[in-house]
């Protein structure tokens, strides 16, 4: 067994959230720069320029990229030969989130009960997904997920007779309805298959992929290209004010499913796509 202390996990989670809230990932920046070159619409160009300028200010002056520093989402893959010492893994993760949001002057956006709506004041509990995998490493993926894009996301339980076009229409329709609320240009995570509960997680986890990556399965890969094309044909554009760039990437992942089912989840992410990975 490889021992990893919970203190290290806390420190890494903290560091990841402190980093992502001030620094947009290179693949996202690159996609935004390419989009700016392609746009001819003046409003679209101006908005993309503002987004790129904002990324510079955020990084140089350490001001959060967006005021909605989000729900802290953590996917953690724990090697089965890893022994976490010195405390509970979930507590260690939440401690890292708590420290990052306090020390980094990040916004505390979590309420303990959705109906009472009392703020927990430290942005915990985080949304944590733990998976046991082979090996002796610990892989931590984090996202700061804002409410605007999250609220516009959708899940639909289709029947197996569904045509590919109907799935594409569902995704495009979801993006149209989202409009400026989701802050386009967007990154679209799509889950297909599994069950009602797993398909949403699958869509969210797809958002962790590099924006230039494609699904290894040809069917999903083709669908990624087709959906991206259809979304950008809508002309919704940056902040829904017109343009060629409505989405920067579509990332699809699939899971085996029941003979009666075809679940599809569309998890929308805004252009402020704050995510990072660390391996211990």
């Amino acid at each position: 067994m490889r021992k990893i202390s919970s203190k290290i996990i806390t420190d890494i989670v903290k560091k990841l959230f402190l980093d992502i809230n001030y620094r947009l990932p290179d693949d996202v920046l690159k996609k935004l720069q390419i989009a700016l070159k392609k746009e001819t619409n003046t409003k679209a160009k101006n908005i993309l320029k503002q987004i790129l300028e904002n990324a510079k200010v955020a990084k140089n002056e350490k001001i959060p990229i967006c005021q909605d520093t989000g729900t802290a989402i953590i996917f953690i893959e724990v090697g089965q030969d890893v022994n976490v010492t010195g405390g509970n893994l979930t507590h260690a993760i939440n401690k890292g989130v708590r420290q990052a949001y306090k020390e980094g002057y990040l916004r505390k956006s979590i309420v303990s009960c959705p109906l009472e709506r009392k703020n927990t004041q430290d942005n915990t509990p985080a949304s944590i997904h733990i998976e046991i995998v082979p090996g002796n490493k610990l892989k931590i993926f984090v996202i700061s997920k804002g409410g605007g894009a999250e609220n516009m996301s959708q899940i639909k339980m289709f029947p197996p007779s569904t045509l590919k076009k109907e799935i594409i229409d569902f995704v495009v329709d979801t993006i149209k309805k989202a409009g400026a609320n989701a802050c386009p240009p967007l990154i679209i995570g799509i889950g297909i298959g599994g069950t009602f509960d797993t398909v949403g997680t699958l869509a969210k986890k797809a958002l962790l992929r590099n924006l230039n990556s494609h699904n290894k399965n040809r069917i999903y890969r083709n669908l990624e290209n087709e959906i991206l094309n259809e979304i950008n044909k809508t002309g919704i554009g940056p902040m829904a004010l017109g343009g060629k760039t409505t989405a920067l990437a579509v990332l699809i992942d699939g899971l085996p499913t029941h003979i009666t089912s075809l679940p599809v989840a569309v998890n929308i992410q805004c252009h402020a796509h704050r995510r990072k990975t660390a391996i211990i």
Binding site: N54, V57, I63, P64, I65, C66, C183, M239, C270
Partner: peptide
Amino acid sequence: LAATGGIGALLSK
């Protein structure tokens, strides 16, 4: 009126 979303650092100026 709409402000651009996701540029809170810039707008703080």
